[in-house]
Design a protein around this nucleic acid. Structure first.
Lengths: 188, 188
DNA sequence: CACTAACGCAGAAAAAAACTGCGTTAGTGC
DNA sequence: GCACTAACGCAGTTTTTTTCTGCGTTAGTG
């Protein structure tokens, strides 16, 4: 029996639509939080027809899942400066820059929102946190291998990441380099 | 000219409806975040008729504002144990207990969600944070007056409050007393 | 260049949300 | 208690939003 097996077209226009939609979702999550917008909103923002979204993703839920998965896979580069202090400073600065940008805020928001959004949400959130922890872990491990005495993973999360996250989430001050540096220095 | 001046009835049933509605809003915010539910949702949850909400509050916005205002006014008791260490431990424990409960999570979520929800939202958020900061400030001032050397307000917020907030928001571990104690001890 | 996947447009269909009329229940003052 | 009526619940109606589909057009791909 002949199976039509349609020829996919992942390039050109399709790719642009995909990118625009992802971007739009990210922006909307950043601006209005999770679950406060519709397919039409996304389509308008992306400059795309509603039908394109419905046909490609089927529903808003599936779209959001797709976006989240994709975003969380985009990992930040792992610093390697040769010293624990250097690595931590670099890592902190990276994270600060990342969550300060509009996209980063969206991811943070998304992560918070996902907590308590059923199975799928929890999974996505755990992936995000695990990724962060793993990145940090390798920096600390490397330091230990060099004979340094790095702080605990949780300690770094609590006293470097948490303050930055909270400040961003609460829309407070803009995370100056000095501030970030101070957070790290306090642990060394 | 005669002004009817209707006789209000703040007791009994009205009070129960009011309480149920407030409770419902709090729960819904905790579960689904800000702006992801409707008047009907609230009414159903509260076991109340839609019309009761429409007539009393007029719109969902006004209802949310009302609930937020009311909640933020319910301030936590200010500890006074006689020493900086005692006060901070007590304060931290209070906050931990507060944000661990279901209502507390809702308030936290609300606060995060309010960031980027226009005028009104920002105002409510600032009120919340200001209240927290003020409470802490007075503890620190009192310590200073006794001749102790308390840490900075922001330091406490960053290294005691932020870690707890983040852990709750990210749905991680359950804030054991030992953990909370450790956060405070680290500053003294 | 032929073929057709993927798109945009416009509008129908469905769902959800907001709001209202009306009879009933139950606070409040006497 | 009793009269008075504020506040309520029920059962719609109206309005708005959101989803989804038919059809002609555009532009990847071999």
């Amino acid at each position: 029996m002949d199976d039509p097996q349609p020829v996919r077209r992942p390039g050109g226009r399709s790719a642009r639509v995909s990118a625009a939609v992802h971007q739009a979702v990210t922006e909307l999550v950043g601006e209005r939080g999770y679950g406060s917008f519709t397919v039409s909103d996304v389509a308008d923002r992306a400059g795309v027809a509603d039908s394109s979204i419905y046909r490609r993703w089927g529903s808003l839920d599936k779209l959001l899942t797709d976006v989240t998965q994709t975003r969380l896979k985009a990992r930040s580069p792992m610093p390697d400066t040769g010293s624990l202090a250097g690595d931590l400073h670099a890592l902190a600065a990276n994270v600060a820059r990342e969550i300060t940008g509009p996209d980063g805020l969206a991811v943070l928001r998304l992560t918070v929102a996902l907590t308590g959004n059923g199975e799928q949400g929890l999974q996505a959130r755990d992936d995000f946190l695990a990724e962060r922890a793993r990145l940090l872990q390798s920096v600390l491990d490397r330091a230990r291998a060099r004979g340094e005495h790095p702080p605990d993973t949780l300690t770094v999360l609590d006293h470097v990441m948490a303050p930055m996250y909270i400040r961003v989430l609460f829309g407070a001050t803009p995370l100056t380099p000095d501030y970030v540096k101070g957070l790290v220095d306090r642990l060394l």
